[in-house]
Amino acid sequence: MTKFAHELVTGDTLDPLSFTVTPEWNQQYCYAQEDFDPRYLAGRDAGSAEVHPTLLLSMSAYTKSPSFRLAPGTGSIMGEQSCTFLSPAAVGKRLDVTFHVVATYEKRDRRFEVVESTVTDEDGTLILRRESHLTFGSNE
């Protein structure tokens, strides 16, 4: 994918992303959100700690795709977002993210792209499905 982000059209796919959350990285998000629920720290019932939901959201933003490219002098703006949590993600497991442009539309003279992201873990369990409505602005 060589297009700039604002040039994407329905059907375009950005390169997928894989990552594995470490306990330290997870705790960084706990600190950022002032959310030290034990489920994110040591796990419960001898299970693995769960990945903090904002870390999942952060890494499933399409700006995280290896092929995401902003045109010089532009920035992306998220106008609307929907997401569904389908299963907890475990710290230490590989997570795979896909990014698909599923629609584009115009509203108030702005062009929006609707990007669907899914997060699946290394066992094939669907963790999160997310749809973001993004538009672009000039930084100049």
């Binding site: 929907s82 389908l86 907890p88």
Partner: peptide, 29 residues
Amino acid sequence: LQPQGHIIRLMLDLSGEAWSRAGSIRLRF
């Protein structure tokens, strides 16, 4: 995503374990 995360935290407090398996949220910024 930071204020979104605070809302998700509130939803977890209200709905417990169910949120991580069947929680949906739709937001405008």
